[in-house]
């Protein structure tokens, strides 16, 4: 409430000052119009400067968020293409590396992305975040069951399930492809 009152007071005062400046310019004799003209233009610059500063800040935040997400996706790509998740890797017991999502979390919670302009990207990132949380949880379950099983057979079963054509993991790879393609298609600055 206080924020709205202060905003209304600020922009109201600027609008009134602008109106008075214009009136002063109109009623002043022709030889004395320099001062009201300068005063009105300074007020106009003050008003537009507020919006310009806001837009520049938003643009910078969005750019930083997108850069961070791109880096995070590239890191996740390296993880997925690495030896640990290769179908030809060792089938024994192992601790798997995890997918990361901190940049996505930060971008979504900071509001750096525009709900209107980036609606599609935001939807995709929400799906990616859910998939990463799910895959990390499944990896935890896999490790827990494999390490507590006395036979190597369990590790082989999980290896086969992880790399089967219908595995959840294949969906995660596809989603990462989609996310990287979308991010790659976005201009760096708007």
């Amino acid at each position: 409430m206080t924020r709205i009152a202060i905003t209304a007071l600020t922009f109201g005062a600027l609008a009134v000052a602008m109106a008075l400046g214009l009136s002063w310019f109109v009623v002043s004799p022709p030889g004395e119009r320099w001062e009201p003209a300068v005063n009105s233009l300074a007020l106009l610059a003050g008003i537009t400067g507020i919006f310009a500063e806001r837009w520049a800040t938003q643009r910078e935040q969005r750019k930083q968020a997108l850069d961070s997400i791109r880096l995070e996706m590239a890191r996740n790509r390296e993880t997925l293409d690495g030896e640990a998740f290769s179908a030809s890797s060792s089938r024994g017991r192992r601790v798997y590396p995890r997918l990361v999502q901190s940049a996505v979390d930060s971008a979504l919670s900071s509001g750096a992305l525009s709900p209107h302009r980036d609606a599609e990207l935001i939807d995709l990132l929400h799906r990616w975040r859910t998939a990463v949380a799910s895959v990390n949880r499944r990896l935890e379950l896999t490790e827990m069951l494999v390490f507590t099983s006395p036979s190597d057979e369990k590790a082989e079963q999980f290896h086969a399930a992880l790399h089967s054509a219908s595995s959840f993991f294949q969906g995660v790879r596809t989603l990462l492809d989609e996310a990287q393609a979308t991010l790659g298609g976005l201009p760096v600055r708007r």
């Binding site: 499944r138 999980f158 399930a161 959840f168």
Partner: peptide
């Protein structure tokens, strides 16, 4: 019984 598939199937 195939826990691995239950966990990793879509």
């Amino acid at each position: 019984d195939d826990v691995a598939r239950v966990i990793w199937e879509n």
